[in-house]
Lab assay of single mutants.
Amino acid sequence: KKTCTFCKKEIWNTKDSVVAQTGSGGSFHEFCTSVCLSLYEAQQQ
């Protein structure tokens, strides 16, 4: 099972999830929504 990098909820429907390359290492992270992605990126600043 996949979990959201930001909120840690399980991702049930992968077509609704967002995968983004974030951080200095350029690793890929999966998020349940684009909202979680935005919040995660804001936290990394």
Results as ranks from 00 to 15, higher is better:
1 K>E: 08
1 K>Y: 02
2 K>I: 12
2 K>P: 02
2 K>M: 09
2 K>E: 08
3 T>Q: 04
3 T>R: 04
3 T>G: 07
4 C>Q: 00
4 C>M: 00
4 C>T: 00
4 C>N: 00
5 T>C: 10
5 T>R: 06
5 T>H: 05
6 F>E: 13
6 F>H: 04
7 C>Q: 00
7 C>K: 00
8 K>T: 08
8 K>P: 03
8 K>G: 06
9 K>H: 02
9 K>G: 09
9 K>P: 01
9 K>R: 04
9 K>C: 02
9 K>D: 05
10 E>N: 06
10 E>W: 07
10 E>H: 02
11 I>E: 03
11 I>P: 04
11 I>G: 09
12 W>M: 15
13 N>G: 14
13 N>V: 10
14 T>Q: 13
14 T>M: 03
15 K>Q: 11
16 D>Y: 03
16 D>R: 05
18 V>H: 07
18 V>P: 13
19 V>D: 12
19 V>F: 07
21 Q>C: 03
21 Q>I: 04
22 T>G: 11
22 T>K: 06
22 T>P: 14
23 G>K: 10
23 G>H: 09
24 S>T: 11
24 S>K: 09
25 G>Y: 02
25 G>L: 04
26 G>P: 13
26 G>L: 06
26 G>T: 13
27 S>E: 14
27 S>L: 11
28 F>W: 04
29 H>P: 14
29 H>V: 12
29 H>K: 08
30 E>C: 09
30 E>R: 08
31 F>T: 03
31 F>A: 03
32 C>A: 01
32 C>F: 00
32 C>M: 00
33 T>E: 10
34 S>E: 10
34 S>F: 02
35 V>P: 09
35 V>D: 11
35 V>Y: 06
35 V>S: 12
35 V>L: 13
36 C>V: 00
37 L>S: 09
37 L>A: 12
37 L>P: 03
38 S>C: 06
38 S>T: 08
38 S>H: 12
39 L>F: 05
39 L>A: 14
39 L>I: 06
39 L>S: 12
40 Y>V: 04
40 Y>F: 14
40 Y>E: 09
40 Y>A: 12
40 Y>C: 07
40 Y>K: 09
41 E>H: 04
41 E>Q: 10
41 E>M: 03
41 E>W: 01
42 A>N: 10
42 A>T: 10
43 Q>W: 03
43 Q>F: 01
43 Q>V: 05
43 Q>A: 12
43 Q>P: 14
44 Q>L: 08
44 Q>E: 13
45 Q>I: 07
